Simulated scan of single mutants.
Amino acid sequence: MNIQSKILGSLFILMASSAFAQTSDADQEVAKLSKDKWQWMADKNVAKLDDLFDDKSVFVHMGGSWGKERELEVIKSGGIHYKKADVHEVSVQIIDNTAIVLNRITLLAVVGGNEVTNPFIVTEVYVKQNGKWKMGSLSFTRTMGPPAQEQPKN
Rank of each mutant, 00 (worst) to 15 (best):
D43P: 02
K56T: 07
V101L: 14
H81T: 15
D51S: 14
A85Y: 09
K44Q: 12
I80Q: 14
I100V: 14
K56M: 00
V46C: 05
K32W: 04
V60P: 03
M41E: 01
L14Y: 06
V30I: 07
I105D: 12
L49I: 08
A42G: 02
K68L: 12
A19V: 09
A31K: 06
S57W: 01
L8S: 07
K84I: 11
K6S: 12
H88M: 14
V90K: 09
G79Y: 08
V110F: 01
A26R: 10
G64P: 00
K32G: 06
A21N: 07
T23E: 15
D55L: 05
S77T: 13
E89W: 01
W66Q: 05
A42E: 03
Q22W: 11
I7V: 10
W66C: 05
V92F: 00
K68F: 07
A109C: 01
D43R: 05
K83R: 15
E115Q: 15
G78D: 12
E89V: 07
K6T: 09
L11C: 10
V74E: 01
H61G: 04
A16S: 10
D43F: 02
L108A: 08
W40G: 00
L49R: 08
N103D: 15
E69Q: 09
G63K: 14
S77I: 03
I80H: 13
V87Q: 09
D25F: 07
W38G: 00
L8R: 05
I75A: 03
L52I: 03
K48H: 10
K84V: 13
W40Q: 02
L102Y: 11
G79V: 10
D36H: 04
E29I: 04
M62D: 15
K6Q: 14
S10Q: 06
G64W: 04
D86A: 14
K56V: 00
V74H: 00
N114E: 13
G63Y: 12
I100Q: 10
K76E: 08
D43C: 03
S18V: 15
A109F: 00
Y82T: 10
V92C: 02
E69F: 02
E71F: 03
S57H: 01
S77N: 12
F20E: 08
L49E: 07
D86S: 12
K76F: 05
W38Y: 01
N97A: 11
K84M: 13
V60C: 06
K44S: 10
V92Y: 02
G113T: 02
F12Y: 07
R104Q: 14
V60R: 09
V101R: 11
E29W: 02
A109M: 08
K84N: 15
K37F: 01
D43L: 06
A42R: 03
H61F: 09
V87S: 11
H61P: 02
F59V: 03
D51Y: 08
W40E: 03
S24R: 09
S18N: 12
V30F: 04
K32S: 08
